[in-house]
Amino acid sequence: MTNWQEDIVLDCSGLNCPLPVLKTKKIMDGLDSGQVLKMISTDPGSVNDVAAWAKRTGNELLETVADAGEYTHFLKKRH
């Protein structure tokens, strides 16, 4: 795991589809380009969903770390 320096943390633990993606979108809208969001989810579906959301919106998914039922996504706001 790379040590990404996040600018903001969003905890979506316990939330299910589609809330992690919807909350991620809302937070990312408020970030400046290049800033990094660390989003924590307990939804295994978030692994594919966050990647799909990033691909569609042009934001960069730096890394997803899965550890003991917790999925941590690092997203970089697009330019």
Partner: peptide, 11 residues
């Protein structure tokens, strides 16, 4: 409602 809100989130 799930598809519509997610679609909007996907711009």
């Amino acid at each position: 409602f799930i598809l519509a809100s997610t679609g909007a989130a996907m711009e």
